[in-house]
Amino acid sequence: MTALVQLRGVSKTFGAAAALHSTDIAFERAKTTVLIGPSGCGKSTLLRLIIGLLEPDDGIIQFEGAPTTFANIADLRRRIGYVIQDGGLFPHLTARQNVLLMSMHLKRPAAEMDQRLTELCALTRFPQTALDRYPIELSGGQRQRISLMRALALSPELLLLDEPLGALDPLVRAALQKDLKEIFARLKQTAILVTHDLAEAAYLGDVIVLMNEGRVVQIGTLEDLRTKPAAKFVTEFINAQRGLALV
C-alpha cells in the first residue's frame, strides 16, 4: 500500500532555531498516525507544513505521489481537513454555516448539503437543533465537534488534527476520544493527530511517531516504544506520563 502523504528531506527553521530537521516520513492510508512529543518538538510544524500554512526550507512533500506546490496547494487543502485546538470557528457564522462554508462556496446542491449535514451530525453526535447557534453559544466540546464536521464536510482524503482535545475538560475529552476513534474506524479515515498525551496517542493511534527537538525519534506502537525504545529519551518520555497503567 502506498503512502498518502510522504515527506522527503523536509526541514524548517524559524530564524536561527530549527523547528524541524531534515525529516523523511510516510503516512499510510486508512491509518491514524499520532505525532507525540514535548512542546516545541516540531509535531505541529509538521502538520502545518502538510497543509501549506508553512513552506519547507528544504525537501518535498508529496500528496498521492505528486509534490505539493504553490500552484496546487489551494486544491489540495480542499482534500485535507484541519482541526485545531480551539476550533478556529468563524465567530460570525452559525454552526451550520461554519460546517457548510466550503460547500456553499463551491456551490454544492442544497439537497446534497442537507444530507451531508445530517450525516455529519449523526457521525459526530452533534444535536441538529443546535446548528443555528453561533460559536460563542456552544460549549467547548460542541465547538470541537463542529470544527470536526467542518473538516469532514468535503469528505477529505486526509484529516489533520492539531491537539483537538487539548482544551477540553477530562469527561468531555474522554467522550470525544471515543467518538473520534469510532469515526476514524467507520470512515477508514487517513488521519494525523498531534497530541502530547501518550494515553490519547495509544488509544487513538495505529502508529505513534515520537518526536523530540525537531527530529523523529521512534515510529511504532506503544508496545514498541515501551519494549524496544530507540533512545533513552523514549523511556524518559513514557515514564514521565502518569496514569498510563490505565490504558
Binding site: 497543509i51 501549506g52 489551494a74 480542499r78 485546538q85 480551539d86 476550533g87 462554508l101 462556496h105
Partner: peptide, 15 residues
C-alpha cells in the same frame, strides 16, 4: 487560528 482556518479550508484570498 481563525485566519489559519480560513486558509486551511482552501478559500481563495478574495473569498
Amino acid at each position: 487560528p481563525v485566519r489559519e482556518s480560513a486558509i486551511a479550508l482552501g478559500l481563495e484570498p478574495s473569498a
